[in-house]
């Protein structure tokens, strides 16, 4: 493949990855920012989203779009609901102690993963995309008759992949406006800034924590519903998103929305481009190396604030 079309394909693939990664990492970042809880089970909420999407979409025999839209609405609610229960049953009981919550969420990770194995089974199952058309992309070429378009071999994407990118951007904008323009966002930000003062001002911090934990899980589930028509639902699929989300929030700065989005773009795009041109293993190596460098030279992350 020529360099130009090859690069365009890499950017497109990277953009899909980055879009989904940004949503997933945002959930992790939100939970850490507001609650100071490192949610190791975050990837399992992602997996739950995909698995629930399959359970919702597969029995609906009508047009695949109906099942998909239903999944888009219900799966995040289910994952969020389970997360609220986890918050009440586990995190609250250990009083949000940073070490105890890590161990607690590791336990939750295994409980969710093995429950999925028992109920859903070990197979990978596809969810049909609401629409999917192969779009061949043109490329410009300087020929004898000046600039001309042609369709290079293999340079294509699908309408659904483009939809994923657009949907992710829309969700990000909605999230940002909720955080910055609504009362709920204000309360979350207040809790994030100073828990004690928030309590003093009558903010029901416990309820905010439940909402935030549920919201974080719902974001992971939502991004999984978007990706599942491309990747299939599988009970072990939560591993990679968890790892990449951690990389993203560490680089972006834990708790920083802007940092998370920038880092997700950086990691997602570089993952796409490096793995197309060189090898996928190398892109993972570079991402992990970047984390190490950030931790050494800028421990608070790109946009994080230094902790007092």
């Amino acid at each position: 493949m020529d360099f130009g079309p090859h690069l365009l394909l890499a950017v497109l693939e990277g953009a899909v990855g980055a879009a989904v990664l940004a949503l997933t990492a945002l959930g992790l970042s939100l939970v850490f920012g507001v609650m100071r809880v490192v949610n190791v089970a975050h990837g399992e909420f992602f997996m739950l989203g995909a698995v629930v999407a399959w359970f919702i979409a597969s029995p609906i025999a009508a047009h695949p779009a109906i099942g998909f839209v239903a999944a888009l609405a219900i799966a995040p609610l289910v994952a969020g609901g389970i997360a609220v229960v986890v918050d009440r049953l586990v995190l609250k009981r250990v009083e949000y102690d940073p070490e105890a919550t890590i161990v607690g969420t590791i336990g939750v990770l295994y409980i969710i993963q093995q429950s999925a194995l028992m109920i859903y089974g070990p197979e990978a199952r596809p969810v049909e995309p609401p629409f999917n058309h192969r779009i061949a992309l043109p490329w410009v070429e300087w020929g004898d008759s000046g600039l001309s378009f042609y369709y290079p071999w293999g340079l294509s994407t699908t309408s659904y992949k483009l939809f994923v990118i657009v949907a992710a951007v829309a969700i990000l904008v909605t999230f940002w406006s909720v955080m910055s323009r609504t009362r709920l966002g204000l309360i979350m930000r207040a809790t994030q800034l100073d828990r004690e003062t928030a309590v003093a001002f009558g903010i029901p911090v416990q309820r905010v924590y439940s909402i935030v934990f549920g919201f974080g899980a719902a974001l992971a589930a939502l991004s999984a519903v978007l990706i599942v028509p491309i990747q299939q639902a599988h009970y072990l699929m939560g591993h990679d998103p968890l790892l990449l989300s951690f990389i993203v929030v560490i680089i972006g700065g834990l708790g920083s929305v802007r940092g998370t989005v920038v880092a997700a773009l950086l990691i997602g795009m570089s993952d796409g481009i490096i793995s197309v041109f060189l090898s996928p293993t190398l892109s993972k190596i570079l991402a992990t190396l970047l984390v190490a460098l950030v931790l050494v030279f800028r421990p608070q992350g790109l946009y994080g604030k230094k902790m007092a």
Binding site: M1, L9, A10, E13, G154, I230, Q231, Q232
Partner: peptide, 10 residues
Amino acid sequence: ETSFTKYFPK
């Protein structure tokens, strides 16, 4: 691996 398009340009 879960996504493959990136391998095909080779």
